Amino acid sequence: MRIPGKTMRVLIVDDNASMRTLLTALLASQGYAVVGALEDGNGVLEAVNRLQPEIVCLDYQLPGRNGLEILAEINETHPEVDVLFMTGSTEASIENRVADAGAAGFLRKPFSQQQVLKELRQVCDTRRQARRGNTEQDAATTERGTANRPTVVIADDNSSIRLLLRGLFSELGLQVVAQATNGEEAVRAAAKLQPQLLFLDVNMPIMSGLEALPHIRGHSPETQVVMITGEVSRQVFAQATGLGARGYIVKSVRPAYVEKFIKQLLAA
């Protein structure tokens, strides 16, 4: 099934020549524009700047630099670019680490052609929805038409996750009134703005989400706090719930789950 609408530009980064050839042919056959294929981790950011892909299919274990380092760099400098992370690693925690680092999708090798296309379609659909929401949020703010929307603060140290959530929340009728990159900023935003909802990343610098949560609840007791995490840990969930969190959403973020969760939260 070919992708509908605008052709998505894809950069492939994998040290295996056969994998680069297979992905290039498969994606081209489905209507993606493969703008480049690199064999090592050196020069990826320069290629992103030059080729302007919307998606990077990024291998983990590369000559030169590993994929996690490159993922962090892309998210920091190009949060609008989605990264589909690919690996043959058997590390138990790698999928959680990748999700927490802001990857839009994850594939563990070996994978089938159907798995690649399904994951890419999910990435594309998520980003399209987020872009629509970001456009609507900007227009509503300019027109001062957000007065009746539930207010929300996003706290996550990853710029790509913040951009994605901002768009999805706006698409769902929420007004994003502030964004924070660490726990201290989240506490200040909650105290000043008293938002109805606050989405709080578990792992952040300076002050973690779990450290910030009781301060947020103290300054803004009516705010419903939802944790954002790359790993569903029973211990972390129990701790967050005990501190007053209303639940959690898991990275990589999927619109259908977020929509269902928010509707349930606002209806409670």
Score class of each variant (00 low, 15 high):
residue 1 M to C: 13
residue 192 K to N: 10
residue 4 P to M: 03
residue 214 P to S: 06
residue 152 V to C: 06
residue 70 I to P: 01
residue 49 N to D: 15
residue 117 L to D: 07
residue 50 R to T: 15
residue 170 S to L: 05
residue 36 G to F: 03
residue 86 M to Y: 01
residue 95 E to V: 13
residue 259 E to R: 11
residue 132 R to W: 11
residue 131 R to D: 13
residue 221 P to L: 03
residue 89 S to I: 06
residue 89 S to V: 08
residue 193 L to H: 01
residue 102 G to E: 04
residue 132 R to F: 13
residue 249 I to E: 10
residue 168 L to V: 00
residue 197 L to N: 09
residue 39 E to D: 15
residue 160 S to L: 06
residue 73 E to Y: 12
residue 106 F to N: 05
residue 137 Q to W: 13
residue 6 K to M: 13
residue 212 A to C: 05
residue 118 K to S: 14
residue 105 G to W: 06
residue 24 T to R: 02
residue 132 R to P: 06
residue 254 R to G: 10
residue 205 P to Q: 06
residue 65 R to E: 14
residue 78 H to V: 11
residue 169 F to H: 05
residue 202 V to S: 05
residue 95 E to C: 13
residue 152 V to R: 01
residue 26 L to Y: 00
residue 216 I to A: 03
residue 255 P to Y: 02
residue 78 H to F: 15
residue 164 L to V: 00
residue 91 E to K: 11
residue 205 P to C: 01
residue 198 L to H: 07
residue 130 A to F: 07
residue 187 V to A: 05
residue 175 Q to M: 11
residue 88 G to Q: 07
residue 138 D to G: 12
residue 103 A to M: 09
residue 130 A to T: 09
residue 27 L to I: 00
residue 167 G to C: 00
residue 230 G to Q: 07
residue 5 G to C: 06
residue 116 V to F: 04
residue 27 L to Y: 05
residue 212 A to K: 00
residue 69 E to R: 11
residue 108 R to E: 14
residue 198 L to G: 02
residue 27 L to R: 01
residue 1 M to N: 14
residue 31 G to Q: 05
residue 114 Q to R: 13
residue 183 G to I: 02
residue 91 E to F: 12
residue 116 V to S: 04
residue 18 S to T: 14
residue 27 L to F: 01
residue 38 L to Y: 02
residue 78 H to N: 12
residue 209 G to P: 08
residue 192 K to I: 08
residue 72 A to M: 12
residue 34 V to F: 01
residue 261 F to D: 13
residue 183 G to A: 01
residue 33 A to R: 09
residue 8 M to V: 15
residue 185 E to M: 06
residue 67 G to S: 09
residue 192 K to G: 07
residue 187 V to R: 03
residue 84 L to M: 12
residue 38 L to S: 02
residue 134 N to T: 15
residue 35 V to R: 07
residue 195 P to H: 04
